[in-house]
Simulated assay, not measured.
Amino acid sequence: MQWQLQDAKNQLSSVVKRATDEGPQIISVRGRPAAIVLSMEEYHRLTKPKTRLTDFFKNSPFRELELDLERNQDVPREVEL
C-alpha cells in the first residue's frame, strides 16, 4: 500500500501494523515514493548476509595463495598541503 506522508504521520500505528501483517508500506512525498516501512522480520531477512564471512574466505579460490603481509618499511613520501 502507498501512503501520503501526512497520512502516514497521522496513522503511524496503522502503517506499522500493516507492514507487519501485509508487507512493505510505501510512503510518498508529493506523489513520488520516498520511503518504505518494513517489518523487523522482513528487514532482517533482507539484511542478513547470504554467506558468513568465514565461509566466504574458506571457499575463496585465493585461499591457498601465500600473501606477503609484511609492512613496507620505506620512508613515507612527503605530501605538500
Rank of each mutant, 00 (worst) to 15 (best):
L65H: 12
Q11A: 09
S60F: 07
T20N: 14
F62Q: 15
P61V: 05
E42Y: 05
L81Q: 05
R77H: 03
R18K: 05
G23P: 02
M1S: 06
N72D: 15
D21F: 05
L65A: 09
K58Y: 14
R77Y: 10
K48G: 05
F57L: 15
S60V: 11
F62C: 12
P33T: 10
P49K: 04
R32F: 04
E41H: 12
D21T: 00
A8H: 06
F56N: 09
I36D: 15
H44I: 14
L65S: 08
T47F: 07
R77C: 05
E80P: 03
T47N: 06
R45K: 14
Q73D: 12
P24Y: 07
E42D: 09
Q4S: 05
F57C: 11
P49N: 08
E66N: 13
L65V: 10
I27G: 00
Y43P: 06
E64V: 11
V16I: 11
R77F: 10
P24S: 09
P49L: 09
P49C: 05
Q73S: 14
T51R: 12
V79F: 07
E66K: 15
N10Y: 04
L5K: 08
E22R: 01
R18H: 08
W3P: 02
R77A: 13
V16W: 02
P24E: 05
D74Q: 09
E41I: 11
P33G: 03
L46I: 03
I36L: 14
R45V: 13
P49S: 10
K17F: 03
S14V: 01
D55E: 14
A19F: 03
Q25F: 00
I36W: 12
S39R: 06
L81V: 01
D21R: 00
V15W: 03
Q6V: 09
R45G: 07
I27V: 12
E41N: 10
T47Y: 07
Y43G: 04
E66M: 13
M40K: 14
Y43H: 13
P76D: 01
